[in-house]
Each structure stands twice: as structure tokens, then as C-alpha cells.
Measured scan of single mutants.
Amino acid sequence: HNLTITQGKLFFHYNPKLCLSEIHKMEEVSGTKGRQERNDIALKTNGDQASCENELLKFSYIRTSFDKILLRWEPYWPPDFRDLLGFMLFYKEAPYQNVTEFDGQDACGSNSWTVVDIDPPLRSNDPKSQNHPGWLMRGLKPWTQYAIFVKTLVTFSDERRTYGAKSDIIYVQTDATNPSVPLDPISVSNSSSQIILKWKPPSDPNGNITHYLVFWERQAEDSELFELDYCLKGLKLPSRTWSPPFESEDSQKHNQSEYEDSAGECCSCPKTDSQILKELEESSFRKTFEDYLHNVVFVPRKTSSGTGAEDPRPSRKRRSLGDVGNVTVAVPTVAAFPNTSSTSVPTSPEEHRPFEKVVNKESLVISGLRHFTGYRIELQACNQDTPEERCSVAAYVSARTMPEAKADDIVGPVTHEIFENNVVHLMWQEPKEPNGLIVLYEVSYRRYGDEELHLCVSRKHFALERGCRLRGLSPGNYSVRIRATSLAGNGSWTEPTYFYVTDYLDVPSNIA
């Protein structure tokens, strides 16, 4: 807008934040220059609390790290170098490059900038070799853009010569660093050979998330399962459950009422301010606690030095998902009996873990797994792929695949051998790939016309006998059925096997 004052003059007093240069501009645009008398524009009460600059400061050096910015700028000295009290560095987070010096300023003089007072450097006698002032900004957020400017702080001049310097606002972004852990990993099994893994992005990506790394490792069953005799009275049979499938998407929606109208769909109840505040506090606490764990609990591995020492970490090797089922080394339970199943799973520490690289999504279907087997899954978020990966501390989750139908069934015939004193040795093959492992066998036998009897055969007993022995049988026709019990439950009964026990007292003698 054009402003013209045809008559009258300007009068400025007691404006401590208004620089004289701005008042002189007002004289020019209003056409009143030359009308004012000496005392109409006070030299001592206008701009006496402001830094009124008329020179431009330029930054000469900028260096960044993930949490620091090192700045240096060209030296500046007023005509009387004693008038320079120091520099004021202003900075704040700036997602967009549209910041002005006066953003967030209120009537009390406060604003949204963080201000650092910096002492002037030592003055050199040689004007050509003056030290460049600077400042190291610490405690910054990774991968965050900051708006920065600097200006001088000078003393009051009796001659009211307006001098000083100020830089333009520059924008500097800190470097990326390792992201925080992925949030809320959930693993479920939808079949006997697959596990579905879902997660949420890290709360602090500290860069642009480029991919996720998912490692999985087959877990050995508890050692007590191999040692305890679950045929003993009072000892509860062990059981394991597989990871249940995901709930429906509708039930997972946030901010939804727990109660549904019987007449149909209901609208979600909005969260109160107290609920939102509580969630923010919980989120802040979780982030602080995660940072504490990362800094205190997890110790970084030592990389190899120039002395030739090897990095103890196993090298990563990509495998196809079809090879995942046989990740671990199978060892027989008892070496003397080769027909026992290889369900003991000690994992070799030198073995390469299978892994998958996930790009542009937060889910993965891990296939080719062994049925009813526990897996430990390790999830890392990465925001750099080359020249070397920059990934987060791992988040861990466990899951067990679903049982395989008929995996616990005894394959092959049940054979028998009759000894003296009416002892019958029953023999059968253990299931080759049971659900988890076989903890015991149930032997059901009966003599024709009598009630059915049951015998429990422990895992250890089966390994020693290759089956079991029935003792003290009365003469007669017998039928026997056997079924295995694994961590997933009972298998199917075998087809009945028949044998006849004679009275050993009636056996004919070869003595003449």
C-alpha cells in the first residue's frame, strides 16, 4: 500500500525493539523526510534493546553428524571492536523451508527459537588472519532439518551509529543413524509349514526405512522333555500350542467401542483428552525405555581390526524358502538304536541362519518350516543398504507352526516275539517326523474274553527296548493296539495285532 503524509511529521519514542533503520525507511515511504526535528525521533529510546544489523554474515563451514552440527561463519568486528559482546545463534526444527525470524513471537518477546549466546573469538592483530567464530550444536535429532541463523550482539553506541551483522536463515539436516526397533511384532501360524509375521514401523526411523531383515531359527525343545518319565503317576503330560491366527481386521481397528449394538453396526467412541494424553505418555515412556535398553543392555560386537582377528559373527547367506525346513542338525536320541526319531534339535552355532529381506511392506510369510516346531524370529529395521547396512537392534518374537495331521501315527506293522515265561516283546517304529517329539506310547492289549488293559511306555523305555515287553501273560489269544502321544496330543491307534500265548508248562520236552 502507498502511504503519503502531505502535512505533519513523524514522532517515535520509547520503541526499544524498533531499529532506527526501520524508522528511516518509514520517513522515505511516507514522504516526511526532512520535516522531523532532532528530538522527534529519539536516538536513545528507539532500538536500544534490539540488534540492528546492516551487514550480512556468511557461514564459512558446515559439518553434520547424526546428532551434531558444527558451524563456522566469517569474522565480524565493528569499528570499535570492544562493542562486540558476542553472537546469538538461533535454531529450531523446520520440516519445511518457510521459516521466518519472527515465527511464534508474542507480545512478551518470546519466540519459538532456541538461542545460544556465543563469546567472540580472540581478536588477531592481523586483519587478514582473524579467527572464524563458530559453535557445535549438540543433542539434535537424527535425520531432522533445522533452520539456523546467527547475528551479532553489540553494545549501545553513544554516537548512535547503527552497526551489526546478521546471516540469512539456512537449512541444515542432520545425518541418518540406526533406527529404533520395529514396533509390535506379531507372529502367527496359518499352516503346519508357515508363519505369518506382521509389525509396525519404528517410532524413530532416523532416516528413510529402506528394508527390513527377518531372521528365523528353529528352537530346540526343553531338555526336561527328553529326561522326564511322563508315565509316572502324578506327572502331567506336557503340551505345546501353536500360535493362533490373526483376529479379523475389524476387531483390530483402534479407537473402536468394545460393545456392539445388537441391531447392527455401531460407531466408534472418540477417545477423551485424558485417554489420548495417557497414550502419549505411555508411548514416550516406551521410547525412553527402549533407548535405555539399547544403550545399557546391548553391547556392540567388536569388529575385526587390522591384526587379522576374525569377526566372530557368522556370515549372512541367503537361502531359498524351500530350504528352511531342514535348518537344524538332527541327532538321534540314543545312538545305539537307529530307529528312534531325530527330534532332539541342538543347533550348531556355526550354522548360517536363513533370512529374508523385506522391502516396502511390514509383513512376511515364512514358508518351508517344520510342522509343530518353535521358531525364534528376529526382526531388524534398516535405513541404508549400501555401502553397508545400517540397521536397528533386533526385536524378537516366537511362534510355533501348526501340527501336521497323521504325523504322530505309527507307520509300519507292530511285530512281536514270544519268549519263555510268557513274555512277549512288542516292537514298532517311532514316527519319523512327529509333531514336536514323542513323549510316550500307549499300549492297549486284551486277552479274548477279558477286559482291555493299558500300559504306558516312556520315551526312554522305548529307546532301550525298541518297544516294550509284556510279562506274566496268561495263555490265550491276544490283540494289541499302540498309539503315540506327542507334544500336540495323541496320534491314531494302530491296526490290531494278534498273537497267541501258550502255557509254557505244557511245552513238550526233548528229553527222552
Rank of each mutant, 00 (worst) to 15 (best):
P205M: 14
N206H: 15
H211M: 05
L213V: 13
L213R: 15
Q219K: 05
E224L: 09
L225T: 13
E227D: 06
C231H: 01
C231F: 01
L232A: 09
L235K: 11
K236Y: 10
K236W: 07
K236E: 09
L237D: 09
L237P: 13
P238S: 07
P238W: 13
S239A: 05
W242R: 09
W242Y: 06
W242M: 05
S243F: 10
P245G: 12
P245N: 09
P245F: 14
F246T: 09
F246Q: 12
E247L: 10
E247P: 13
E247D: 07
E249V: 14
D250V: 05
S251P: 12
Q252T: 15
K253S: 06
N255F: 04
Q256C: 04
Y259T: 13
E260L: 11
E260Y: 15
C266Q: 14
C267L: 09
C269H: 02
C269P: 05
P270Y: 06
T272S: 07
D273S: 06
D273L: 05
S274P: 13
Q275C: 06
E279K: 02
L280P: 15
S283L: 14
S283T: 14
S284R: 09
S284Y: 03
S284D: 04
K287E: 08
F289W: 05
E290Q: 06
E290C: 03
E290N: 11
V296Y: 09
V297Q: 14
V297E: 06
F298H: 08
V299I: 08
K302C: 04
T303K: 07
S304Q: 14
G306E: 04
T307R: 14
G308H: 14
A309S: 14
E310R: 07
K317G: 06
R319D: 08
L321P: 09
L321M: 10
L321E: 12
D323K: 03
T328V: 06
T328L: 14
V331K: 04
P332I: 11
V334E: 02
A336M: 05
F337Q: 10
P338M: 11
N339H: 09
N339A: 10
T340C: 09
T340R: 10
S342H: 08
V345D: 05
P346K: 07
P346T: 14
T347A: 11
T347S: 11
E350Q: 04
E351R: 13
R353H: 08
P354D: 12
E356H: 11
K357A: 14
K357N: 14
V359F: 04
K361E: 10
V365K: 01
I366T: 00
I366W: 01
L369A: 04
R370Q: 08
H371R: 10
H371P: 13
H371W: 08
F372S: 12
F372L: 07
G374T: 11
Y375S: 00
Y375L: 07
I377H: 06
E378S: 12
N383I: 01
N383M: 15
Q384H: 15
P387Y: 09
E388T: 06
R390A: 14
C391V: 01
C391H: 02
C391M: 14
A394I: 02
Y396V: 06
V397M: 15
S398Y: 15
M402W: 10
K406S: 07
I410A: 13
I410Q: 07
P413I: 00
V414E: 01
V414F: 03
H416W: 06
H416K: 06
I418D: 13
I418Q: 10
N422S: 09
M427H: 15
W428K: 01
E430V: 10
E430S: 15
E430P: 14
K432H: 11
E433Q: 07
L437E: 15
L437F: 02
I438K: 01
Y441S: 01
E442N: 04
E442W: 08
V443S: 00
V443L: 10
V443N: 00
S444H: 11
Y445S: 05
E451A: 14
E452F: 15
L453G: 04
V457C: 14
V457T: 06
S458G: 11
S458V: 06
F462S: 04
R466Q: 02
C468F: 04
L470E: 00
L470F: 03
L470M: 08
S474R: 04
P475L: 06
P475F: 06
N477P: 05
N477R: 10
N477F: 13
N477T: 04
S479A: 07
S479H: 14
V480I: 15
R481I: 02
R483N: 15
T485M: 09
L487F: 14
A488F: 04
G489Y: 08
W493P: 01
T497R: 10
T497P: 00
Y500F: 03
V501K: 06
T502L: 12
D503M: 12
Y504E: 14
D506L: 06
D506S: 13
V507Y: 03
S509T: 08
S509F: 08
